[in-house]
Design a protein around this nucleic acid. Structure first.
Lengths: 357, 357
DNA sequence: GCCTGGCACTCTCCGCGCGTGAGTGCCAGC
DNA sequence: GCTGGCACTCACGCGCGGAGAGTGCCAGGC
């Protein structure tokens, strides 16, 4: 993060800015290092290669460009990309067609898991990068209802619906035997009693209730409390979900054309904990987040960039959605894409919320 | 399939059999073509390389061995592997430890989706190959219960539990407004009325019911039927599930060390339809299935082998579980592994079934 | 008749050297 | 301050040649 704002727009004269911009654009396009001759040929500068070389040398001194080896062209550094994104980039707005696709796909599913999955793979398809969708623990969100369904004599499925539409299913093995009747009563009681509370709050209240007198005498109440605690306890499997979609898209990227880096990259995407770490820290920030290379531990090691944005209802942010790709990616397209999708997602979720309440 | 039994055990004299066996074993171990000298050095034959060359030439004539190029050692052909598996292989029984691991992992989860997921990744881990778990459409299985839960005014979650323990959730958007009370009644009615029927049967009966007189007059009945039809209609998203776990394991295999074949393989594993096709055809056969290279369309193209077995209760097979890997894999270990796991899985499912009924 | 050592042959793999081309830095001149 | 010129540096591709592994075939021995 330290690098994020280290260079001001005014630190570069307009010509240098244009040169940097052109280099970034061309490199994003071709993936190759850009030389002074190539740059001169593009026609945007009325300068000879030699003059451009001087400018480029200056940019290299400022840490915005680098050479893979002496006598190769220049490629942008992380700082170069950062400067580009902060000061030089003009986002390319999404086409109507693209916006329609997003709206349609996001609107299609109704279960939130499906929606998120869908969003991830849509993002991957539209960006030709790896799409990620992160949904942190349900624990901090309020529930709308909690129902218990008889599956076997002592087996009960618990369906928890969050106010944000997240549905969590959990199968509970109890030591009591329940009848359908009882379960209906319990469901009703718990839903009425606890709608609007978070799982954590419910857990605490249930535990407090065990200490109350009434619980000793009322058998149904005992069962209710025991079942309720079972249900809220240990929702660990849902602590967070991370969908990584379209990992295969990196197969086409020239920077991963050799087997070794392909290998490394796939293994990196496998390590979801690290990704979760990053996305979790991003969660506190509003607006589009772009992390480039050295700006975070994860992206540094693998020379990735991450473009992500928070999504969720206004009442509570739900998670992060974004893309991961090589540092060399079309930020001008990725940024509005992620931005739009996360907004569409948020809208969808809010809609569900209103609709359901 | 044509090749599956094309060579009889007796078509090869004992010495040739031993040679073939040793070549297959060594090649499975090293991945390299095996030459006559290497073979002579292993100590199992009191023969000179020259003699072994003669034997190997015979085996090549019979289509059991092949040379990647002149003046390289030999590697087994599909037929070679097939002969090996049918006549030469001695399965290496699982260790107690391995069996315990399987029992523990399979026993751990309670929701069937989780169990299957778990089984897939366990298989992948233990075999260091790609694990696959296939669960075909729920349509052909009987249900145990069907419950409806109020999520929003016109939004209802339907929870269908199959006799085999499969739980399907579906969110329905209705045009009616339902109360909790009504839904409880409907759940109860449908479960009692239809437990033991397949979704297909239920759909037909519900449609027939719309034609009956009573349905016209009883408003609740109308709602019940409408909801029921919505629920059974179009369970397409659950038509089949295919979990492909541990695709990253192929990263270590020398046969996929170059970028091109890695790419090809990943894309192949992405194409789930083809895989589903194969597994679906295997579903009709009992016992362990081994498909090698040219024995099926899919494996032919990619030089894969598949080791899989049906799992499910005795009353109804549920799906296929197995591994996919390069033709050169340790069949002697894979076979008992897949076999044991599928049995463990079946046992677990039967248990659930008994337990739940 | 079967096994064996020997021999010529083939083919892959690896390292080497070289030329080419792209690109640079620096300098002198306009 | 821009420009052309020049010498220098690398990476890349190519051809070559030797080493090594393996083969097929043949003639001789038990």
């Amino acid at each position: 993060m330290a690098l994020k704002h280290d260079l001001h727009e005014s630190d570069l004269d307009p010509r240098a800015r244009e040169v940097l911009r052109e280099i970034v654009l061309q490199h994003i396009d071709s993936g190759e290092p850009i030389g002074s001759r190539t740059l001169a040929k593009c026609g945007k500068f009325q300068l000879s290669p030699a003059s451009l070389r001087n400018v480029m040398a200056d940019l290299e001194d400022q840490g915005l460009l680098q050479q893979p080896h002496t006598s190769a062209g220049r490629i942008p550094t992380d700082r170069g990309y950062r400067f580009f994104i902060n000061h030089l980039m003009t986002s390319r707005a999404l086409s109507l067609r693209e916006r329609e696709t997003i709206e349609k796909e996001v609107g299609a599913a109704s279960e939130i898991d499906h929606v998120l999955h869908q969003a991830g793979s849509l993002l991957s398809k539209m960006s030709d990068q790896v799409g990620v969708v992160f949904m942190p623990t349900l624990l901090q969100f309020a529930i709308r209802s909690m129902d218990f369904i008889l599956i076997g004599d002592t087996k009960i499925q618990c369906v928890i619906v969050g106010v944000n539409g997240v549905v969590v299913n959990k199968i509970i093995d109890t030591r009591f035997v329940f009848t359908r009747d009882e379960l209906e009563k319990i469901s009703r009681f718990i839903t009425i009693e606890f709608a609007g509370s978070t799982l954590e709050m419910i857990r605490r209240r249930l535990i407090r209730m065990t200490e109350q007198e009434r619980a000793y005498h009322d058998q149904l109440m005992q069962k209710t409390i025991s079942l309720g605690i079972e249900a809220v306890n240990d929702v660990a499997p849902f602590e967070h979900e991370l969908y990584v979609e379209g990992a295969a898209s990196i197969l086409n990227k020239p920077e991963f054309s050799d087997a070794a880096s392909l290998r490394k990259t796939f293994l990196a995407l496998q390590e979801k904990e690290k990704l979760v770490d990053i996305l979790e820290t991003c969660l506190s920030e509003e607006g589009l987040q772009i992390l480039i290379g050295s700006e975070s531990d994860f992206t540094q090691v693998h020379n990735f960039s991450i473009v992500a944005r928070r999504y969720g209802s206004t009442s509570a942010p739900l998670g992060m959605v974004g893309i991961i790709g090589p540092m060399r990616m079309e930020y001008a397209r990725m940024a509005p894409l992620v931005d739009y999708l996360s907004r569409a997602l948020s809208r969808k979720i809010e809609e569900e919320e209103e609709h359901g309440s």
